[in-house]
């Protein structure tokens, strides 16, 4: 699967990227984590608050940085 972090480089976006990478590593998932900084592409997901996490082109959550364990729970459910 593919995880995208949407955000234009603020501190929270970096925190989310770090948390997502940790969650993926701890779950041993075969997933790529990429960062999307282009505002036009970010808007195409309908997001108005950054950072957001997109899993396989679907927005999972936005406007907050959940804990690693919460991200793990959400990834397992999917």
């Amino acid at each position: 699967m593919e995880i995208k972090i949407l955000g234009s480089g603020c501190a929270n976006c970096k925190n989310l990227e770090k948390a997502a990478r940790e969650a993926v590593a701890e779950l041993n998932l075969d997933a790529s984590v990429v960062k999307e900084e282009d505002i036009v592409k970010i808007m195409a997901y309908g997001v108005m608050r950054t950072p957001a996490l997109v899993l396989d082109e679907k927005v999972l959550f936005y406007g907050r940085v959940p804990s690693v364990s919460e991200i793990k729970e959400m990834l397992i459910k999917k």
Partner: peptide, 17 residues
């Protein structure tokens, strides 16, 4: 409304759009 200046651009675009 919760607002952080780092989200000012997506918010502006979302409103105008």
């Amino acid at each position: 409304t919760p607002f952080c200046s780092c989200s000012a651009i997506p918010l502006f675009l979302g409103f105008i759009e």
